[in-house]
Design a protein around this nucleic acid. Sequence first.
DNA 1: TCAACTGTAACTGTTAATATTACAGTAACC
DNA 2: GGTTACTGTAATATTAACAGTTACAGTTGA
Lengths: 141, 141
Amino acid sequence: MNSEFIIAVHSLVLLAHKPDGMASSEEIAANVCTHPARVRKVLGFLRKNGYVTTREGSGGGYRLCIDPSDMTLADIYRTMAAGAITPNWCSGNPDMDCMVGSNMQEVMNSVFCGAEKQLESYFQGITIGQMLSRIKACQKT
Amino acid sequence: MNSEFIIAVHSLVLLAHKPDGMASSEEIAANVCTHPARVRKVLGFLRKNGYVTTREGSGGGYRLCIDPSDMTLADIYRTMAAGAITPNWCSGNPDMDCMVGSNMQEVMNSVFCGAEKQLESYFQGITIGQMLSRIKACQKT
DNA sequence: TCAACTGTAACTGTTAATATTACAGTAACC
DNA sequence: GGTTACTGTAATATTAACAGTTACAGTTGA
């Protein structure tokens, strides 16, 4: 899985946890352990998809604009990492003579298409709100 | 998904398709479109796990030693690519003060652990024999 | 006007992945 | 018994992907 998915999820959980639901890229970056510029890039995507609002200028930052219990990891996966488990390397070649070699790409593609759906349906069952609950549960123990 | 998984699946389907169930690394490599040395490395793993037998020397090569309908992609995934969708990049840090930042790794880990299981159960439903059938179906159309 | 932000693009360094080379070991065949 | 055709494996390029960083223009509040 790519790290932008992780950064997005972590950022949203953090925003959901903050009482005022707001934080700057610098504050988020320190919590995630990465560079503020990366956070800005990732949260820029989330803004374009309507998950957060941003305010530029002094005192600005990012704010959650969807109920954490309405936002699933599947939404974030589709936005930030769609196709992440499908390999970018292909075996075989449609132009070759052999039946196996020439059709493998198509069959492999359908296999991974199904795998993506399977993964999405799993992520569909996990919300940002639940992630926060799990974190609270960790804290107690 | 890593390419070794692809190479393994492709090689096994090819072996299952061949009338004598046998091929050399060079022949497989040409079909997969990679280098014979990579094929030998991957099929070495498969041999250690009992999926193929090898014969060195002249006239040697690789031979399938399990019924294609008994071998699932889950078996191959576990052998060649276990943990492939779990990110190697981690956000947060257990030592930090913030509840979110300090527990995110553990929670994220459990999420991807579940995702792995989900993926494996999907792959469990696809056998090498089925892959070959799908390829034959492609050919006809 | 200054200070604190976001939005982006460009660049760098590092790691991971793939391709390639090389050679020792092994078995069949004449 | 020598030659040829293979596997096994390690070492070494070469390339692509990824995370980190810098830089600066644009925006907003005080």
